[in-house]
Structures are given as C-alpha cells and as structure tokens.
Amino acid sequence: MSALGELRRIKGSTPPKQRNQNRAAFLFLLPWFLGLALVTIGPMAASLGLSFTRYNLLSPPRFNGIDNFVRMLEDERLHTSLGVTFQYVFISVPLQLGLALLLAVALDRGLRGLSFYRSAFYLPSLLGASVAIAMLWRQIFGVDGLVNTVLAWFGIEGQGWISNPDTALGTLMVLNVWTFGSPMVIFLAGLRQIPAMYYEAAAVDGASRRQQFWRITMPLLTPIIFFNLILQLIGAFQSFTQAFIVSGGTGGPVDSTLFYTLYLYQRGFANLDMGYASAMAWLLLVIIAAFTAINFWASKYWVFYDDQD
C-alpha cells in the first residue's frame, strides 16, 4: 500500500494526543442523550420486560417467566422465518451493495446527462415502500407479467414467479436490489468527499488511473462501504414492508417470504401475542448485534479511516 504511505506523508505529522473532552462531548451529545432517556430507552426496556409476559394488548401483561423463549425453540414457523431472513440477507445485501457501488462510480462524473441517470436509478427507491408496489410487482413477475411476456418472445413458457414458493423470495430479492438507489446515493456522496489533493499527489508520482482507483478511491471509500454494509444488514434483517405488501401480509406462498419481522408482526398484532413478539424482537436484536459486532471487528482489517494514525 505505497499510496497510503504516500497519503500519510502528505498529511504530515500526527495530531497530539487529545485531552479528555467530556464537557464538550456532553454538550454535543445532549439532544441524543435526551432522546435516549426519554424516547428510546423506556420503550426498549418495556419491550424487554414484556418479553417475559403474556401480553395481548387488551389486558395488562402477566408475567410468565421464560415461557416465550421456550416456545420459540419449538416454533416451526419461527425457524422458517429465520431461514428466509438469512437467505435474504446473505444474497440480496451483497448484490444490492455491489450494484450500488458500481453505478455510483459509473455515474459519478464524466458523462453528460448524469443527473438524469442518477434520478432514473434512484426513482425506484422512492416507490419501494408504497402500497402501489404490490400491484407493480405482480405486473412484472405475475403469471401475465412482463417477465413472462419477454420469455414468451423466446418461446419459453414462464410461471407465476411471485406465487411459486421456490421463486417468491427471489422476486423480493430483486425488489430489494431494484431499490439500490439508496446506497448508491450514499456512495456518490462518499466519492465526492475524497479530497482532490490525494489524486493530485498520486498523479505527480505517476500513478495510473487504475492505480489511483484501487489505491485512493477504494481505500478512502471504505468507511462509506462499511456504513452501507451495516445499514443494509440491519435493514435486511428487519425487512418487513416489501414482503408485507407483496404477499398481502401473509408471508406466502407457503411461508416462503415469511420474514422474521413479518412473523413477529403477525404474532404481535394479528394474534395479539405481544409478549411473544417482544421476545422475538430481542432474539433478533441479539442476532443483529452479533453480526454487527463481527463486522466491526473485521472492519479493522479493511476499513481505512483518514483520521487514523
């Protein structure tokens, strides 16, 4: 990584070790602390408490120990929903991020009409959560949808992609990838944040464009890639709206799109079993936290912060 060494050289000496800045930090964090104390912690603690109760929303909660957690061990639909969610996370998140990064780089600059393309690629993200999306999706992946029409031109007989248990989850992954506009926007902003002086210095040293891309752009973009990864990971684990809308809230066909939070919602609100839903939520929190922690640990090896020394 000679280019990075170069960067460090340009940056000059490292800043002196800072003294403790509790006072300033407290002031800057004050709104957040207030929010934490007043809006966030209370409901979180309440949901943790409720996870040890039988609570149907209509009557007061009743303590039932670890019953909810024991029931989770035997709940087959819960296991199905975990499987569905993991598949979704591990396939659609890398695809979406890869596409977003590729297009962010391609649409960054150097071509006319870029602002049009950016908007066109971004527009689907605006629609991603709208009630109209269910109908739109059936228009594409339905029995009489666009995909089958195109397949028919080539003499291939299609199928009902949304309603086939083997392909339904795939269409939701496509839906997620289709809304890659959000991470793309963040990448675009990240690309613009890279100081031009690094490129200049590299050019002076005779680095080729390809070298500049791999040695400057990519390393300096890693904090943003990392952020997007965490954001999409948490988002995908909590994925709810799209499956809810497309399957009409059932997670069907045959539970093939029964995301974890969709099942949690069904238990909490349709079955009025909020105690169980809260227990499920805390299991999800543990899972997400574990994956996030692994990523933070791994980030030491590939994320480059400009303020590191």
Binding site: F240, S278, A281
Partner: peptide, 23 residues
C-alpha cells in the same frame, strides 16, 4: 471528541436501531 465511555455509548446508539418498530 474523546470522552469517557465513547465505545459504550456508540454501541448503545447502534443497539437502539436494532429492535423492530413493531414492539
């Protein structure tokens, strides 16, 4: 800024977005 318990508060911040809204 460098302040006491920075990593702890940062972890709390991340944890606060990990619970689904429905509960």
């Amino acid at each position: 800024l460098d302040f006491t318990g920075k990593r702890f508060w940062f972890a709390i911040m991340l944890l606060s977005i990990m619970l689904p809204i429905h509960v």
